[in-house]
């Protein structure tokens, strides 16, 4: 039996690598400790595969083809960027499960774009390197269109998360899957407001995650998100998909810090399933905690 045993949301700020001495050491150490805590919890969940949902920053996909959402199903490496201390590496993957998720989607109205070979960017590789690779677990990259028009509608991110969950529950093998929603929270990328962080907005988002309010998060308008959290905050699509992949859930904030030196409000949270039905997969997921 395969099930989604839990999820996490976390940032993917490349400035942690390109400008490690930007913030005070205590702030930096707190962020890295949060990644370590997530890694510890992934191990506690006895995960066998991790799905990381990230975002292209108009590097991987160009104006020649902009997928709404994509799953990598074969060879994966990354990051595509040159970041000090994060060299490009081969990523261990679960190709069979990834192909199953894609095929399941194609039969159920979720038309995945598929990448049989893929070079992931920092949005996927940073969570992988900090939280997944230390446990030698396979990782499946998923990308949602959060940064380049046409954006994936938030409601669609929720549907994709649900489809991921359904596909996993219909997988014949035994898998304990953890999903990571990578991104955010408030940050303005490339705009005149770059460097601004909106603590109040970030707390509001984390409150929605903590209360398990997937629908509430998905109901935010992009105009409001951009006004309050910057164009970078559109990455909360990945939070929505991660929460939806768990199903009915509650969250726990692990850590938050507003780090203007890294131009981002950095938030970490765990997402756990709650008992809202008595199906076998829900029981299995709850028993996993």
């Amino acid at each position: 039996m395969a099930t989604v045993v839990g999820a996490f949301v976390m940032p993917h700020d490349p400035m942690m690598y390109s400008n490690p001495d930007g913030p005070d050491a205590s702030v930096r150490d707190g962020i890295f400790a949060a990644y370590d805590e997530v890694a510890r919890r992934i191990a506690s969940l006895r995960a066998t595969t991790v799905i990381v949902i990230g975002t292209d920053h108009y590097i991987l996909f160009g104006p020649g083809c902009l997928p709404q959402f994509l799953i990598a199903t074969g060879d994966v490496e990354g990051p595509v960027e040159r970041l000090p201390g994060l060299e490009r590496r081969r990523v261990a993957t679960n190709s069979a499960l990834a192909k199953h998720i894609a095929a399941h989607g194609h039969l159920s109205g979720v038309d995945w774009a598929v990448a049989p070979t893929f070079t992931a960017d920092h949005s996927v590789v940073i969570p992988y390197a900090r939280c997944v690779e230390p446990h030698a677990l396979p990782m499946i990259p998923v990308y949602l269109a959060c940064g380049v028009e046409p954006l994936l509608p938030l409601r669609r991110a929720e549907e994709i998360g649900r489809q991921i969950r359904t596909a996993i529950e219909q997988w014949d093998g035994d898998e304990r899957v953890v999903v990571i929603g990578s991104g955010g929270i408030s940050h303005w990328v490339g705009t005149a407001d770059m460097g601004k962080v909106n603590h109040a907005f970030d707390r509001r988002i984390l409150d929605l995650v903590a209360s398990g309010d997937t629908a509430g998060l998905a109901s935010l308008s992009d105009a409001e998100i951009v006004a309050e959290g910057g164009n970078g905050a559109l990455e909360i699509r990945n939070f929505v998909a991660a929460m939806a992949s768990v199903g009915p859930c509650r969250g726990e904030v692990i850590h938050y810090a507003a780090v203007p030196e890294w131009i981002t409000g950095l938030g970490f949270a765990a997402i756990m399933p709650v008992a809202s039905d008595v199906g076998p997969h829900r029981k299995a997921a709850l028993n996993a905690i």
């Binding site: 920053h57 108009y58 590097i59 940064g147 028009e149 990328v189 490339g190 705009t191 005149a192 164009n231």
Partner: peptide
């Protein structure tokens, strides 16, 4: 930026092609 092109591309353009590839110089110009 005023023309509506994706700010990530505009920023990346500055960081790859300008003489002073710094965030500070980019923001100053912006």
């Amino acid at each position: 930026a005023d023309g509506g092109w994706n700010p990530m591309l505009v920023w990346g353009y500055w960081m790859t092609c300008s003489q002073d590839r710094s965030v500070g110089s980019y923001l100053a110009r912006l």
